[in-house]
Write a protein that binds this DNA or RNA. Structure first.
Ligand code: FES
Ligand code: FES
Lengths: 134, 134
DNA sequence: ACAAAATAAGACTAAATTAGTCCGATATAA
DNA sequence: TTATATCGGACTAATTTAGTCTTATTTTGT
């Protein structure tokens, strides 16, 4: 399917939420989960993943929570999606580690390259600031 | 995942193949399957779906097979993909029949609208002629 | 010291989707 | 009437996605 996964949707919602915080504030997983109607323990996992990719930073312990890892203008849509779904490849055969039996005679890869390029360049051009604005 | 399904890849390969035929010629499912290394009975299903969507037309019986339903320039990438995967919606909540509990306070739908628009307009602008050329 | 409130990490289960198979029916040419 | 096709649908298997649970660790406040 040509669709974002629920996890990715949740990640984007959470990032929107965190981006809307005042400087110095943090949001807990619980807060975000309640606010956006996301299962808490699933969201927790997603926030951990975003932390590992340094899109957000976490403060552990009581009164802990999450805040943006850098300015919203410096977080691209591509980074947000790839943090959850991994590298974006319109077709599997473009993934590096994938060896395809059709490799020598396949024309599909090349045919779809423009789409791949178009899409990724767009995703790199949109930032969290843009996404949070709407 | 933000990826075309195998079925869709197979459909595109088959359409490339059919598009390369001389006027008046047809290709059988078997031929295409062997040529592109696609499981025969799966490809048969896919070709039936493309037929129902009138991207190709089928000739039944002995010496039957498939040919393009209209000129390659008049078959868009959007039509090819949607024939197999159904309408393209970047997020589930944009699908008409889907009623979301977050509908009244959700900002995500709007935020991703530009991406949805950008993508679909591109997919409508590319035709089988373009795809087959590479 | 200790309790409460968080995140971290990983194993696990359940649900949904995708990929692929199989079979009986129908159509058509030779 | 036989061989070669498509048609349609039910079915199974494999993979991916979605979601849960449990235990450990970090930090603050009392
Ligand atoms: S399908 Fe694998 S290389 Fe094109
Ligand atoms: S998530 Fe359903 S309306 Fe946005």
């Amino acid at each position: 399917m040509f669709k974002l996964s629920k996890k990715t949707e949740y990640a984007l919602m959470a990032l929107q939420h965190i981006a809307s915080l005042d400087k110095g504030q943090v949001a807990t997983a619980k807060e975000i989960a309640e606010n956006k109607l996301i299962p808490h323990s699933l969201l927790a996992k997603i926030l951990q993943q975003l932390t590992r990719h340094q899109l957000i930073l976490s403060l552990q312990g009581a009164h802990g929570g999450y805040a943006l890892g850098r300015k919203a203008e410096e977080i691209t849509l591509a980074q947000m999606i790839e943090a959850i779904e991994g590298p974006i490849h319109i077709i599997e055969c473009n993934e590096s580690r994938y060896s395809c039996q059709r490799d020598d005679f396949c024309t599909l890869k090349n045919s779809l390259n423009p789409l791949q390029k178009q899409l990724t360049s767009y995703l790199h051009s949109v930032t969290l600031a843009d996404v949070a604005a709407s």
